[in-house]
Every structure is written in structure tokens, then in C-alpha cells.
Nucleic acid binder design. Structure first.
Lengths: 352, 352
DNA sequence: CTGAAAGCGCTTACAG
DNA sequence: CTGAAAGCGCTTACAG
């Protein structure tokens, strides 16, 4: 391996001069510096000590990385913007892949050159976050919540707006409202499911298990839910989706079946980014600013590192509810579901 | 700052023992190790030398970071998968923000702990890539091409498929084919524009400047192009978009105007990810596997680093052309544009 | 299981 | 503008 010593030998100077050249000491003769740097670069020299700054925060997955998902991409973009102020860089790592069984989390992060970490975790790996917090390593968990007072987190709170969304449908006259979510029982989706039930309850609409649809969070999952809803006897007149892709997939399927939104069915989506604007009609949605979550997490973490303080953050950022064009009054014939048992299925068959 | 010395003092052991504990030497008494690690973690100890591995590649922007764009997000996802095999991590950095004027690119990267770099650049910053290559630092430029034989790059070659796409429209009977692209003169878009012209030329269709539309790469830009096309006298019967968002925006606008695709107008999009599937009808598209580009770049770079070889890669990955539902024969009344001067504008007005 | 001492990589005050 | 020497942070063969 290349070192100051080997470079000094090749350049015919002392290690002192090599060190100075590498650190841009103005005292060094420019020609000497040139020669030294050329040799250093050619031999792949890497300082094993010293000047190398260490201003990385980690964006770390406990399990598989899912960086291509719109939510994660937006979060990461926010993290980069948030880390900018204190001039930190962002290192993407994966605990599952690289942590050695014999090292602590702190050791793992320091080995990677990480001074603080933003963690993205699945439900089953929550204990990892608690362990990192117990070690005292600077950390913020993204998009989860913890009861323990020493685990920092930032998450979006979609509960109030999910209730608002369902009540908006109720105010428009809807009574049979379907709920679509994905089959991974993460906190966000369970929150929204609870909110859906709470909104029904507050408005004395009985909860009906047959109106709840679980699918993989894909366009096909959303399409499936739409088709199932439209083929039901006394079908729902609205669907509230807790997942962006499901909502988009449902809209796409509606077009394919010549079902009009919102004339035939109202749809409310959930959006972490800008997907609601990519379809027609623009989706009335509960919206979460994923980039904002990442920004906030990174800014707080890096400020904490700069100030060398130790703080615990437990922050819930409320979502916001946007009304667009995908919601309206229920179709006249279906307002009272009990008196028009078969209209839904009939209309669906006509559409197909 | 915390060091082996200060920790040794606090723990009441020698620096030797501290070093061993930090490196998980099995010879250390577990209780001693516990005590040392606890102190190390508490005092925020960071090894300034030694064991810290340095297996980072950089994903570096020369200008602004655009990580939230679907193309970049997909690329990064591919990079992470590609870096996995050799167990590299990915550090996101920005040359514009952090490079000191007095340091070489190599020094910048080494200071950041980066052993090789994947560069994303704008047209105006191509010279930076050449400078990095001249220094001999391991690098692959993503999604650009270079004539210089010592600059490594990997890019998607969409030219052949862009010609194929336009010729597919011609084969369906289209003669007036509009071209929509964004206003940033990057290589990709200029390539596709050239291909559009070449396809017309090969088929003896005169190029018409008024059928070429430049807009910002937003949904609104695509919507504008669709509206402009539909309101033209002797309007085009098809549009080929060189940008994903423009195509999606056009489809959305068509729905809003009750214009049917492909019955009223055929649309071919360009897709770096999966956007073509998110709309109805699924867009016939020239497709580029952005994740694959990132994967390939990262895998080759990290393998090169592992093998300590120096290679130059100049790789063009062909795109692929997918026919879906957004293309069909031109509307009967508009097949020969010269005989139906006003049909397009009339139909548009009726739709509005 | 532990430590004193040697030694590597690096930087820097001092001398020229 | 340069180098010999001192010194820091760290690791490790050797001794106990």
C-alpha cells in the first residue's frame, strides 16, 4: 500500500514534504507539489489517518433497501437538503448486510465513518432502533413511533386527516365507503385503518368487514380492488386508499372499464409525493411531505452533531388533506345502498 | 477529543487493552471490554486511524443534486444493488458544494473517503469529468458519452429505438407526427430529436418545424403540448415524447378533454422507470432501464477497485421499445392531412 | 488476560 | 522551500 514513505522515496523528497504537498501547504514549491500529487494519485494513495474529514450521516436500512420507492426517494432527497446546512454528506448503508455479530451498533457506524444516523426500519426490526438508542449513538428513526422516551423519531401523523378524508366522503353523501390498503402491517397503514373505522363510528355508520380490501401495494392491487368493489352487490360508492400506488392503479382500471370518477365512484388516495397529479382526475388525497420528513430529520441530526449536544426528538408532522377532482356526490341510484342491492354489479357488468 | 489514551485513563487500563477491546480481540476479559466500550461510546470516540474500512464509492453530482427525479432514484437503487457484490457503500456528495479550489478532484474524493466515483453531470460540466479522468481517479460517468478514450461512461442509447418508434407510427399510417421534448439541451434529448428527424427522412416525410414542441419537463408541459397539437390546423395524429413526464401530462390532459387515446391521437412516450404503466392507456414507449445503468456502473467500478486494475469502460446500453395501448391507426378523417385542413381544430373545440 | 515497548502513518514546530 | 526530529494515535509481537 502506498504511504507517505513510499511516495517520498519515489518523489525523492522527505515524508515531511509529501505530507505538506498532500495538505496544500503553501510553503511547498509548486513543482514539487505537482510531482508528489501525481505520484500519490497514480499509486492510489489514501491517507490512513488524519486530515480526512468525517462529516457523514448514514441513511441506514435495517433490512432490505427500498430506495427506488417514491417515498424513500423523496425522503432521501429531503435528507440531502437537510444535511446541506451543516455540510454533511449522506452514506447509504445496510445493517443487515454489513454489521458484524461481534460489534456494537456504534462500532458499526464508526467503522463506516458515520457520525449520526437516520434509520429506516420495518416493523419487526424496531428493537434494533431501541438498541442503537440504548448505546447512545446519535440517531433519528424515520416514519416510525416509539413509546420509549430515549428513541428519537420523526414521522407523519395521518390519523386526523384520514378521519377528515372519510368524513368528507360522508358529508358528500357516501355511506358505503370501501377501504383499500396494503398487506404489510406497518404503522402508517394500521393508523389509517383505525382512522377509517373511527370516522365511520363517529358518524354512526356500521363497520363492514367486506368493504376492507388488502392487496400488495402495486398498480395491479389497486386495479383488483376497483374491480372487486364495482362487482359487489350494493357496492360502495367511494374508496379510501391508504397507499398511493393502489389509488393510481384503481384510477387506471376505472378508465379501462369506462367508469367515471367521481360520477360513478369517488376515490380518495394517499400521496407521499406528487402521484396524485399524474392521473386524471387529480386525486383528492391525504398527503404526506416525505421530502419534508427527511429534511427535518437530517437538519436536526446534523445540527445536533455540530453542537455536540445530545437531544431526543419525538416529532409527528401532520399530513394535509387536499380536495381535487376525484370526489363528488354518490351516483343518484346508489345513495341508499339498502334499496338498490344489485345496481353496482349490474353497472360493472355493463361497463365490462 | 476522545482517544485511546483518554479512554484508557477513564477505564483504568492500558491503551493496549483499549485498542484490543475496540477491535474485539477475544483475549480481552468480557467485563473489561464492556467497560471500555461503554466509555468509548459515551465519549463519542472515533478512531482517527486504522481499522476503519474504506469501501465507499461516491455518487457525485457536479451541479445540483436531483435525487428525487424518478431517473436518479432508479439509478441510485441500481447503484446500491451493483455495489452490493463487492460490499461497497454509497456516499452521496456534491462537487459544487464541497470541493475546495486548492485541491485536486482526487484529493477531494479521498478526503471524503471515496475510492471510486459514479458521476452525474450536466452538459456544461462535462469538462469536470474529463479532469477527473485525467487525474486517473477511478470513475464512471453516468448517462453521458465522451469521445476521449480515457473517460469511462455508461449511457443508454435510445437512438435506434427512437427511430423504430417513429417508424412504428408511420407503419400505422401516421404522417403528421409531432415531437415533444424538454428545453434542456442534454444529450439524450438531442439524440432522440435527431432520431425523429432521421426516421421522417428515411420515410420521405418532410420535417416540419411547427410539429416540434419544447416544454419544461413537467406534467403541465405535456398538457400544453397536447392542447397545442389538438388545436392545430391539419393537426398531427400522433406525438412522440422524448420525456416521461411530458407523455404522462399529455395523457392526463387528453382525459380531461375527453380525447381518446389512441382513437383520436396516438402517443408514444419515453420511460426511464415504470411510469408508462401508471396511466390509461398504458403508454407505448421507448424504455430505458435506469436501474440497470446504475447497477452496471456500480458493479464494474467496484469490481475494478477490488481487483486493483485500471480499466476504461465506454458502454452504451440499448433502450427497448414496448408497444402498449396508446398507439393505433390515425383517425379516419385525418389520414391525409392535406385534405382535411381544419378537422383537428374543430374536434378540439368540440372536446373543450 | 494484561501491559510496556516497538513501530507504522502521519503532522508540525524548529532549524536551516 | 526543505528536512530531521519530536510527537500523536494507533496496533501488535513479546513478556509476564
Amino acid at each position: 500500500m502506498s504511504s507517505v514513505r513510499s511516495i517520498a522515496k519515489l518523489a525523492g523528497v522527505s515524508i515531511t514534504t509529501v505530507s505538506r504537498a498532500l495538505n496544500n501547504d503553501p510553503a511547498v514549491n509548486p513543482k514539487t507539489r505537482e510531482r508528489v500529487l501525481a505520484i500519490a494519485n497514480r499509486s492510489g494513495y489514501v491517507a490512513s489517518v488524519g486530515r480526512r474529514v468525517n462529516t457523514n450521516i448514514g441513511f441506514t436500512y435495517t433490512d432490505e433497501s427500498t430506495i427506488a420507492h417514491p417515498f424513500d426517494a423523496a425522503v432521501l432527497d429531503g435528507i440531502m437538503r437537510g444535511a446541506d446546512e451543516q455540510r454533511y454528506d449522506v452514506l447509504l448503508t445496510n445493517l443487515k448486510r454489513d454489521k458484524r455479530p461481534d460489534e456494537s451498533y456504534t462500532q458499526f457506524f464508526l467503522r463506516k465513518g458515520i457520525r449520526g444516523v437516520i434509520v429506516r426500519t420495518m416493523r419487526e426490526s424496531r428493537s434494533i432502533c431501541e438498541a442503537i438508542a440504548d448505546e447512545g449513538f446519535p440517531m433519528i428513526v424515520l416514519s416510525e413511533r416509539f413509546a420509549s422516551p430515549n428513541v428519537s423519531y420523526i414521522d407523519g401523523d395521518s390519523r386526523a386527516d384520514s378521519i377528515r378524508a372519510v368524513e368528507y366522503l360522508i358529508a358528500l353523501g357516501h355511506r358505503r365507503i370501501a377501504f383499500g390498503f396494503h398487506s404489510i402491517p406497518d404503522r402508517d397503514h394500521m393508523d389509517r385503518f383505525a382512522a377509517y373505522k373511527e370516522a365511520l363510528d363517529k358518524n354512526s355508520i356500521p363497520y363492514d368487514d367486506s368493504l376492507v380490501f388488502r392487496q400488495r401495494y402495486t398498480l395491479a392491487g389497486g386495479a383488483t380492488i376497483l374491480k372487486m368493489v364495482m362487482s359487489m352487490k350494493s357496492r360502495p360508492t367511494a374508496i379510501f386508499f391508504a397507499d398511493p400506488l393502489l389509488a393510481v392503479g384503481a384510477v387506471k382500471q376505472a378508465h379501462a372499464l369506462h367508469i367515471s370518477i367521481p360520477e360513478d365512484i369517488s376515490i380518495i388516495g394517499f400521496d407521499d409525493t406528487d402521484l396524485r397529479f399524474g392521473v386524471h382526475p387529480t386525486l383528492t388525497s391525504v398527503c404526506q411531505d416525505a421530502g419534508g420528513l427527511g429534511f427535518e430529520a437530517a437538519q436536526r441530526l446534523t445540527r445536533m452533531l455540530t453542537n455536540r449536544e445530545k437531544e431526543i426528538f419525538q416529532i409527528s408532522v401532520p399530513t394535509f388533506f387536499e380536495v381535487h377532482e376525484s370526489t363528488g356526490a354518490p351516483p343518484a341510484g346508489l345513495i341508499d345502498a339498502t334499496t338498490s342491492e344489485d345496481d353496482g354489479a349490474a353497472q360493472f357488468k355493463a361497463a365490462v
